[in-house]
Simulated scan of single mutants.
Amino acid sequence: MRTIPIPEGSPFGLANLPYGVFSTSGTAPRVGVRVGDSVVDLARALGDDVFARPTLNAFMAQGYERWGEVRRRITELVSGGGVPEDAVFAVDAVTLHLPIEVADYVDFYASEHHASNLGRLFRPDAEPLMPNWKHLPVGYHGRAGTVVLSGTGIVRPRGQRKGEGAPTFGESRRLDIEAEMGFIVGAGSPLGTPIGCADFGRHVFGAVLVNDWSARDIQAWEYVPLGPFLGKSFATSISAWVVPLPALEHARVPTPPQDPEPLPYLREASPWGLDIDLAVEWNGEVVSRPPYREMYWSPAQMLAHMTVNGASARTGDLYASGTISGPGPDQRGAFIELTWGGKEPIKVNGRERTFLEDGDEVVISATAPGPDGVRIGFGDVRGRVLPARD
Rank of each mutant, 00 (worst) to 15 (best):
R174Y: 05
G142K: 09
R2P: 06
S111P: 02
D37A: 15
A126I: 01
A187Q: 12
S172V: 07
D37R: 15
P54V: 11
G186M: 03
P345R: 02
F229V: 14
I177K: 04
L245W: 12
R216P: 00
I364V: 15
P257R: 06
P131K: 10
V39H: 05
L129V: 11
Q62L: 15
S325L: 04
G145K: 12
S214T: 10
R353P: 05
R71C: 05
M1H: 13
S233Y: 10
L121A: 02
R72S: 12
E261W: 05
F89T: 02
L248Y: 10
E8H: 15
G145C: 03
D41Y: 08
T95A: 14
L77W: 04
Q219M: 12
S172D: 10
R53V: 11
Y105A: 06
E285A: 10
K232Q: 07
S116I: 01
Q258W: 05
D86N: 12
L230S: 14
T236E: 01
D199F: 04
R173W: 13
D390L: 14
R34D: 01
E352W: 10
P7H: 12
R293I: 01
G227T: 08
D277M: 06
I336Y: 06
W67T: 01
L303I: 03
Y64G: 08
D259V: 15
Q160W: 15
H305R: 11
D199T: 12
S237M: 09
D358W: 07
N349Y: 02
R375Q: 14
W297F: 03
V31Q: 09
P291M: 03
R2V: 13
G341T: 01
K134C: 04
A144D: 11
A28P: 05
Y265H: 15
N283A: 08
D49M: 12
T339G: 02
G379I: 13
H141S: 12
V204W: 03
E65N: 12
G328N: 00
A334E: 00
L226R: 15
G350R: 06
F89I: 09
E164D: 11
E101I: 06
F355D: 07
R53K: 15
S189E: 06
L56I: 00
I154L: 11
R34I: 09
I74W: 01
R289A: 01
A103W: 09
G63W: 01
S150C: 09
I100P: 00
F51R: 08
P246C: 04
V243R: 00
D104A: 13
H250T: 11
L46T: 08
E112S: 00
K343V: 10
H135Y: 14
E112Y: 00
E222R: 08
E178K: 01
G377S: 10
F200H: 09
V224W: 09
G80R: 05
E268N: 07
V286D: 02
F205H: 02
